[in-house]
């Protein structure tokens, strides 16, 4: 077990930020931490990185207790905090060398920093001041800092926020590459990211764990309502589509275009094809929108509707 969290609670004044949560993460696992704003994700991560102590319960990383053996834990953990704090008046390379010496990487640090700069795609920016970098590049500097010492456990609080789509793909593959032999816990509000990266997701809401399972099981656990967008060559009457078994709603997006909501999407596809043949028309496009994890997430955390608009606010 790389990370063991045992009945942890964290109380700020009167507010319970984390309420009696327990989970374990095995070596080599990439675990996604999901939850609306203020659910307690960051607090849990801060406890695991020894920044804050828990109020109750116990947690350990690589067999070291986070309260009593903080130095051992800090040596083994790489951490990217949520706001990605950096010294803006330092140069990229200078900062990474500083972090390397802070972690006592010794004579190999120069090489380590060079290779990390290359892996995170910072080669062009290495001689710039961090303050001059755009958000995406700063994020890479933060990631480079977290991975610099080849930590056994990598804790990333929203690692891909502020990245453009190309960077997103690169950083994800970097995380995946590192996650092969390291334990990674990452929090995110982008469902696709968790779906793409993680083997397991922990969904947390109001300080409590509401789901903790492998991706496949989580996706199967909720009766998913999917959306199918179909475009025909000729006008088709929408009543024909409504008659299909399992279809709950049909939206007209024009005479020839429909959005079909239903549960068993595979059968629906067959039926739609049959309708097209019957009406002697041709299907020009058929697009399936599967937001499985997102529906799981909404289902499990819908008790806090006001808070769950996270993706919009960032």
């Amino acid at each position: 077990m790389s990370v063991i969290v045992d009945h942890i609670s964290k109380i700020y004044g009167e507010q319970k930020a984390v309420d009696d949560i327990s989970f374990q993460v095995n070596k080599g696992e990439i675990v996604g931490f999901l939850g609306p704003n203020g659910a307690g994700k960051s607090t849990t991560m801060k406890i695991l990185t020894c920044f804050l102590p828990q109020t109750f319960g116990q947690a350990s990383v690589c067999g070291h207790d986070v309260v009593n053996e903080t130095m051992e834990v800090r040596r083994k953990v790489g951490y990217l905090p949520e706001q990605n704090p950096l010294y803006l008046d330092m140069y990229v390379k200078e900062y990474l060398l500083f972090m390397a010496s802070l972690r006592k990487l010794g004579p190999g640090s120069q090489k380590r920093v060079e290779s990390m700069i290359e892996r995170t795609g910072l080669t062009q920016e290495r001689k710039k001041k961090i303050g001059q970098l755009s958000k995406g590049y700063r994020q890479r500097v933060g990631l480079a800092q977290a991975m610099l010492h080849e930590p056994e456990v990598l804790i990333l609080d929203e690692p891909t926020s502020g990245l453009d789509p190309n960077q997103l793909v690169e950083i994800r593959s970097l995380i995946r590459q590192i996650g092969k032999d390291k334990t990674v816990i990452l929090s995110s509000h982008i469902m696709q990211e968790v779906e793409a990266l993680c083997s397991r997701a922990i969904i947390i809401n109001k300080g409590k764990i509401v789901a903790d399972d492998s991706m496949a099981k989580l996706q199967g656990s909720v009766s998913v309502s999917a959306k199918l967008t179909v475009e025909f060559r000729d006008p088709v009457h929408s009543d024909l589509l409504r008659k299909i078994e399992g279809v709950s709603q049909v939206e007209n997006l024009g005479e020839k275009k429909f959005a079909i909501h239903g549960s068993s999407i595979d059968k629906t596809k067959e039926q739609v094809f049959a309708i097209a043949v019957e009406a002697k028309t041709i299907i020009l496009s058929m697009q399936e929108d599967e937001q499985k994890l997102e529906s799981v997430f909404r289902e499990l955390t819908k008790s806090a509707p006001a808070k769950s608009q996270k993706a919009n606010s960032k």
């Binding site: 801060k46 990185t49 020894c50 920044f51 130095m71 800090r74 040596r75 953990v77 951490y79 905090p81 706001q83 704090p85 950096l86 010294y87 803006l88 972090m99 802070l102 972690r103 006592k104 800092q145």
Partner: peptide, 14 residues
């Protein structure tokens, strides 16, 4: 203010 205290205090320095 900058939050760099978080990276500093989660590194292995007392």
């Amino acid at each position: 203010r900058a939050g760099t205290i978080e990276t500093l205090t989660t590194s292995p320095v007392s």
